[in-house]
Amino acid sequence: MKFLCAGSELVEAGSRGFQLEGLKLFAVRRAGQAYVYANRCPHRGVPLEWQPEQFLDPSTSLIQCATHGALFLIESGECVAGPCAGQFLQAIDCREDSRGIWIDI
């Protein structure tokens, strides 16, 4: 397991981008749970954010690809609207303990 960040660095309904060992990743916190995905839209393979740390739609309830507006469920990474509907973001296994968020890459 690799250390990603301190738990306090990922606020509720917030998102953050990371680069770790050459991989572009992002993390989202919803209902106290951290979710980590590869920062790559399944539609065109482009990074999702339009500005640093901006991975969520305005309501902070869905992950949004800035390029074509695809929307993904935070809990599963499934695309529910847009050009890649039915496809999934690549989930990264993670766990959180008192020291922070850890990922399995």
Rank of each mutant, 00 (worst) to 15 (best):
S15N: 09
V46E: 06
F26Y: 15
E21G: 15
Y37G: 02
V36S: 05
L48S: 03
S15Q: 02
L25F: 13
V11M: 04
F26L: 04
F18S: 11
Q33C: 07
L10S: 02
G45N: 06
L25A: 09
E12P: 05
Q51C: 11
S15K: 04
V11Q: 13
G17A: 09
H43Q: 01
G22R: 05
C41V: 14
G45K: 05
E53M: 03
G17T: 04
A34P: 15
A31M: 08
V46D: 05
H43T: 05
P47T: 14
P52V: 06
L10N: 03
L10G: 02
H43P: 04
S15A: 15
L20N: 09
A38S: 07
L48N: 04
Q33L: 07
Q51I: 01
C41T: 10
F26V: 09
C41A: 14
H43E: 11
R30P: 00
Q33N: 08
N39F: 04
V46I: 11
L20F: 07
Q51Y: 13
G22Y: 07
G14S: 03
V28H: 12
W50M: 06
A27Y: 03
V28D: 13
R16P: 00
Q54G: 04
C41P: 10
R44W: 08
R30E: 13
G32Q: 10
R16W: 08
G22T: 02
Q33W: 11
C41S: 12
L25N: 12
R30H: 12
H43V: 09
G17F: 06
P52D: 11
Q54L: 08
F18D: 06
A38I: 13
W50S: 10
W50K: 01
E49V: 02
R16G: 02
Y35I: 01
R44M: 08
K24W: 01
S15Y: 09
F26A: 11
L48D: 03
G45E: 04
C41H: 09
G14M: 08
Q54P: 01
L48V: 04
N39D: 15
R30L: 14
E53F: 12
G32D: 05
P47H: 03
C41K: 13
Q51S: 09
P42Q: 12
R40Q: 15
R16L: 08
E53N: 15
R40K: 13
L23I: 07
E49H: 15
S15P: 05
Q19W: 02
F18Q: 04
K24Y: 06
N39G: 06
A38E: 05
K24C: 06
A31P: 00
Y37M: 01
R40C: 10
E49P: 04
V28I: 14
G22V: 01
Y35D: 03
L48F: 00
L20Y: 00
L25R: 03
E21Q: 12
A27I: 05
L10A: 10
V11L: 09
G14Y: 06
E21F: 07
E12Y: 06
F26H: 08
R40V: 02
S15F: 13
Q19P: 00
L25P: 15
P42E: 09
A31W: 03
W50V: 06
